[in-house]
Amino acid sequence: MNTKTHWIPLCGKDDLIPGSGVCALVDNRQIALFYLPEDDQVYAIDNHDPIGGANVMSRGIVGSVGDEPVVASPLYKQHFSLVDGRCLEDDEVRLATWQVSLDDELLLIDPTPR
């Protein structure tokens, strides 16, 4: 495992929408960002919905299943874990996730997927 994290600045905290998603472009990859103000956490997950075949994950509804924060695809409503990208309805499907960190008003990302 690579233990060194290479942070680059991505956007401002005010670009994020509390309780909802936006999309960012990093190395030509679309990354969905969700900001959950209750836990002051930001999650970064692949914007491509592999089941619907479109770049739409950032436009899904966030919520929780048990204790796990999830986002529901806006196309066919499958749930994906915001923590590890796992699809809750289909073991075979998993979205890439990235490490992000809120540094005061700035959001940082490690551009290598976890």
């Binding site: 509804i61 966030v62 929780s64």
Partner: peptide, 10 residues
């Protein structure tokens, strides 16, 4: 309880 979901939020 929890954070809500795509059923209860809409």
């Amino acid at each position: 309880k929890g954070k809500g979901c795509d059923i209860c939020k809409p």
